[in-house]
Design a protein around this nucleic acid. Sequence first.
DNA 1: ACAAAAAAGGGTGTTTTCCCCCTTGTTCTT
DNA 2: AAGAACAAGGGGGAAAACACCCTTTTTTGT
Lengths: 217, 217
Amino acid sequence: MMRTITKHKIIIVDDHQLFSQSLQLLINSFKDFEVINRFENGKVFISHLQDNPDLEVDLILLDVNMPVLDGISTMKWVKENNPNLKVIALSVNDDEEIIIKMITNGAKGYLLKDTSPEIFKEAMISVIDKGFYFTESVSGILVKKANNDSKKINLKEKEILFIQYACTEKTYKEIASEMCLSPKTIDGYRESLFDKLEIKTRIGLVLYAIKHKIVLV
Amino acid sequence: MMRTITKHKIIIVDDHQLFSQSLQLLINSFKDFEVINRFENGKVFISHLQDNPDLEVDLILLDVNMPVLDGISTMKWVKENNPNLKVIALSVNDDEEIIIKMITNGAKGYLLKDTSPEIFKEAMISVIDKGFYFTESVSGILVKKANNDSKKINLKEKEILFIQYACTEKTYKEIASEMCLSPKTIDGYRESLFDKLEIKTRIGLVLYAIKHKIVLV
DNA sequence: ACAAAAAAGGGTGTTTTCCCCCTTGTTCTT
DNA sequence: AAGAACAAGGGGGAAAACACCCTTTTTTGT
């Protein structure tokens, strides 16, 4: 006689149909797991949650890069409205900023899509049982952020404006006149920024500005 | 009695194990297809081809974004050494440049990973039978490229290298010594680039480089 | 084979950038 | 009320960036 086992109920949210349908096959091939639903973006997933407030689900696999409503926005909604949901973020990129955003919004795990099925299964079990699963590299990023958070640089309005001008082909003299300041004041801005940002040239300032999205390209 | 059918032999090259193993399950669920091999990057795939010159394979599914040896480099090798291989490029992004590079290097199809399994199967059949499969949007990009090709700026290897150095805090003198050229030659590079790219300062060069992804930030 | 580009290097001079040290006033603390 | 912190401005000088015009050598097209 066969005993009926209650399988863990999984929902996949991913816009890549090829991946999402394939992943469903993989998960269903695991004894204790079954995919009960798939959604192609955060919006339809959230709609489904709203329509089914008593939905039983053990784990959400949430893609980070999606059209319509991406992983981060979806995670924010989950944090606000359904914080008990267990979510593992799935992504192809290991951008620190994104990892941090997903985790601070309540993701219980962050896996790259090049994870092996074994690790993947382990992560699912860990999140369902222990409540979280983080690889060493993700933990490392979290520690690093914690350290860096203390010595954070905050720029004033005028500095931001100056940086934006510096990211053009104008000379400092031209910038000064556009900002209605003396060239010598601009000189001061530059030196104080070089010091603060640990750079040595205007090129460094441009690179910093782009990296930190002070100017967009 | 069951008749033995020769299935189409497929190879998957993709670094995302989760995707690649799952996709194998999906393909094997199609009657006429079977995955005979999976590789995690272009390098190991090429090694396998070299070790098995008489390998019978009907179709390669090649991921574009991979570590070690990416899709484009792998495609280049295939074009040089094994041009009869039928390859469908798989990618998450629809960057025109990349699509063009893959196709000019001989890819017979280009599919986004959010394709439905039905279209995916149709594409596989089309490439095996007719030799190609392109969606309308990909065809559109090819037409557009044909038109734009006339007024294209093409940079030489050394210029690219110089631009990359210019996007650092090094001085031209330092760049010259790192590139083993006289500072005066670097001077020439700069002036010719300023002219070609219609810019006036090194800042403009940095912005151009970032916009055109010559350097990454 | 020969002209035409292109690549490499040079000279000289101007402008811009960068650096260090300085003054004056204001605001905020303690 | 003294001191700290900051915003605005300044002088002078060295180094880097930029401009313009030049020669020599190598590559390339036909």
